[in-house]
């Protein structure tokens, strides 16, 4: 493997909730500018993993380093400055339903204070255009469809031009056409924003469309870290089981 710059370095990450061990020694390197998809069954700790990367949760043991800085040691303004590197798109969008779409997208800009006040409106319009949602700025989130809400969530995540974009199950629960368009957006982001992408998914179709590297989380550890093509050639029963299950959900009509 060539020496690419490591953006996110995770070492020996442990986390338990009560007696339930969720992460049991996760090791992973994410290269700058790459797109890494984390796969794993429901309840395998993918979301918990992602929340450690952005510092929403503190590990019991081990560390997450971003650009050489250990995340869980940051406090106060250092943590605020650190969070500026990230944009996160939540599973169902997690839009603030008391605000208009435009105010939602403007929120990180106003809060993180990365650009001047007068530029905010332009940036909001630009971001909504990027996710193909021109002209919905005045609507409330409740007026939008599920797919649109997620795209607004994307617009909000990219608004402050983050170096790292995190996606928590961006396509779960959407119809195939919307799924494909969401995947295309994600690919576009990587081209246009030059960001490092970490995506959580259990939808293999999306994985093959969006991933440079796939990492599989199984019983609290990363058991594979490979390109999608390599993944298909591996003969690990835990992986083939996962792939087979996914194929079955494709084959069975809902």
């Amino acid at each position: 493997m060539t020496e690419a710059t490591v953006k996110i370095r995770i070492r020996d990450l442990h986390r338990a909730f009560g007696t339930k061990v969720v992460l049991d020694g996760v090791d992973l390197d994410v290269e700058a500018g790459s797109s890494t998809v984390i796969i794993g069954g429901s309840g395998s700790g993918k979301s918990v993993f992602l929340k450690h990367v952005i510092g929403l949760l503190t590990p019991d043991r081990g560390s997450v380093e971003v650009d050489g800085v250990t995340v869980h040691q940051l406090r106060g303004t250092d943590l605020t400055r650190f969070r500026r590197k990230f944009g996160m798109a939540f599973q169902e969008g997690a839009l603030f339903d008391s605000m208009t779409v435009a105010d939602n997208v403007a929120f990180p800009l106003r809060r993180l204070g990365s650009i001047g006040r007068d530029e905010v409106d332009d940036r909001v319009r630009e971001c909504l255009a990027l996710v193909h949602l021109d002209g919905v700025g005045d609507k409330m989130p409740a007026e939008l469809s599920g797919g649109m809400r997620r795209r607004v969530g994307f617009a909000r995540a990219i608004a402050h031009r983050p170096e790292i974009l995190l996606f928590d199950e961006p396509t779960t629960g959407l119809d195939p056409v919307t799924k494909a368009s969401i995947d295309e957006l994600i690919i576009d982001f990587r081209e246009s924003l030059q960001s490092t992408l970490v995506i959580i998914s259990h939808d293999m179709g999306s994985v093959f469309r969006t991933a440079d590297k796939v990492a599989m989380l199984y019983e609290g550890r990363i058991i594979v870290h490979a390109t999608p093509r390599e993944l298909l050639t591996l003969e690990d029963p835990r992986i083939s089981e996962f792939l087979r299950r996914d194929l079955e959900t494709w084959a069975t009509p809902p």
Binding site: I54, L56, R84, F86, A94, F107, P108, R111
Partner: peptide, 9 residues
Amino acid sequence: QIDALEVMA
């Protein structure tokens, strides 16, 4: 939404 707030500093 509360996590989202925190993520946005």
